[in-house]
């Protein structure tokens, strides 16, 4: 279920663009920000709120990588493994995270805290290797830095 607040904002989007369909991506972003993923139920709700055929929302959402339809953890760790980051050890970073979190790429930790993904270039090649956790970028990574970042996130939890 999309929260009432977000629903209100999605409805506002209806009139914002020259054509209503344009509101799909902004609506997806609103939902994504709230829950880290956009499951089928939400897609249907978006269609209802924007008064569009559901299929149009599903088609659009499926094209873009940012809107996972399956539940992801509270923190979605996305490691860039494109060329510049790979040159500076991105693959090792992924392995390190897999070992540390005891999950494989694409999986979520049993406590629902972390999901690990690899992604294509995030436009931060000058500060490689890097990763994105939810909306934030973490750059120039080292093992110590990764440890600290994850620790901080866990601490924030408690």
């Amino acid at each position: 279920m999309i929260s009432k607040k977000i629903k209100g904002r999605i409805v506002e989007l209806k009139e914002k663009f020259p054509q209503r369909k344009s509101a799909i991506l902004p609506a997806l972003h609103l939902v994504l920000k709230e829950k880290n993923y956009v499951e089928k139920e939400s897609l249907k709700e978006i269609a209802g709120l924007l008064e569009l055929p559901p299929i149009e929302v599903f088609e659009t959402a499926s094209f873009y990588t940012m809107f996972p339809q399956k539940k992801v953890g509270k923190y979605h760790i996305q490691v860039c493994t494109n060329l510049s980051c790979s040159l500076l050890g991105a693959e090792e970073l992924v392995k390190y995270l897999e070992e540390k979190l005891k999950i494989k790429v694409g999986e979520t930790t049993p406590n629902g805290m972390f999901t690990l993904s690899t992604v294509e270039c995030l436009g931060s090649c000058g500060t490689a290797p890097m990763m994105q956790i939810n909306e934030d970028y973490y750059e120039n990574l080292t093992k110590e830095k990764v440890d600290r970042i994850l620790d901080d996130l866990l601490k924030k939890q408690i």
Partner: peptide
């Protein structure tokens, strides 16, 4: 609008 193309 019952048929669509999905994914990339």
């Amino acid at each position: 609008d019952e048929l669509g193309d999905f994914n990339k």
